[in-house]
Design a protein around this nucleic acid. Structure first.
Lengths: 200, 200
DNA sequence: CGTGAAGACTTTAAAGCTAAAGTTAGGATT
DNA sequence: AATCCTAACTTTAGCTTTAAAGTCTTCACG
């Protein structure tokens, strides 16, 4: 009885992060009905997306902005010149509550990335507008992001890229049809801070 | 001078969420070097992932757990029987700081999903172990998640699924090689709460 | 015009996270 | 075996976000 026979416990060795196949095998042991092919697609997609977001976070943090701020810049740029949206509209598109949007705009206005003014024609409304500095930051972030993205896809032929894009869009449509967004916000924490290195 | 001639501003009408193509077109207007094909793949991937996470959040919230708690359950299940890991190991795999892990374990232990004990053989270490209830929650969540996933992929042939999985894994390998995880944590906010409906 | 109701933020309280400092047990050195 | 060092959490302070309540226009009606 000198070793850890049964009751209270000892810990297995630290262990590596499980590979995709190990993960799926583990799930199957507990839940036999699982379709490994489906799970492989879904898990790969999730892991890929996570790694990509970490990469984006590293890149934009070099520019002195966080991933969340970058999301706001992108949304304003997509809206087109003159790069103006209200807080409510921004919140809806970013999947945030209006309260969070208020604070985020505070910070970004403080940093000079956007301005915040009242609408002349309707003084209840607020207009958030991209500054030149904000636009420049977006552009530089976009440069780096697209370089990263091209590097990521470099091993795929143009045909493969096309097919991949089409398949993903089919899936996107499917999920949009199946899971309507219940009135607005699409909360998912898609973006957040990530400083360059966490290494000690 | 009765209308909004130039200076301070008025807001364009509320507007719809831009489609993928509109988004890419907007980016191209500001940044001509952008490869639309690459951007299409990347943007579709991001949107798809976001929608999926929202859907997962809705599903697990029906079971009374949050998406973040579900991530912990998954990690413990993947580790295999006897479903034990230390807080540090969990934190690393989930991309959290140890501090956040401490609090998360507090809450989950309170809810009866896991237990927290000291390691007999090394009293500095803590052992987090899945309870039967936690395992049951995981199983039910997994059932629902896999039903959702199969529904999502239903229009893809088995061959398409296979190809898609392989391509995604190639991309995953590429990003892992290119963007090493700098010593451990992979922070990205991959999971968070999402209550069923936000509608008022 | 005065009043009520609705809309669009903002404010407040509380949850959950990060960074940094603090504890405590195990090992290594001498 | 005394001391220092390291590892593995936990605690504390501050930030960001959510939910709910509050404020301030504007619009519709009487």
């Amino acid at each position: 009885m000198s070793d850890t026979s049964q009751g209270a416990a000892s810990l297995p060795p630290p262990g590596h992060e499980p590979s995709l196949d190990e993960q799926i095998a583990a799930y199957q042991r507990e839940f036999q009905d699982l379709d490994p092919q489906v799970e492989k697609v879904v898990s790969a997609l999730g892991r890929l997306n996570r790694r990509m977001n970490v990469a984006y976070g590293r890149q934009v943090s070099e520019l002195g902005i966080s991933n969340t701020e970058w999301e706001v810049l992108k949304t304003l740029v997509v809206s087109g010149a003159p790069y103006r949206l209200g807080p409510g509209e921004l919140a809806k598109r970013l999947g945030l509550t209006p309260a969070a949007m208020t604070h985020r705009i505070d910070r970004m206005a403080n940093d000079g990335l956007v301005t915040r003014d009242r609408d002349e024609n309707n003084r209840v409304r607020v207009i958030v507008e991209l500054t030149d500095e904000g636009r420049a930051k977006w552009l530089e972030a976009m440069r780096r992001a697209s370089a990263f993205e091209e590097d990521l896809l470099q091993d795929l032929s143009s045909e493969e890229r096309g097919v991949l894009g089409e398949v993903l869009i089919r899936l996107l449509r499917r999920v949009e049809d199946t899971q309507p967004d219940a009135g607005g916000r699409l909360k998912d924490l898609d973006a957040q801070d990530q400083d360059g290195a966490t290494a000690s």
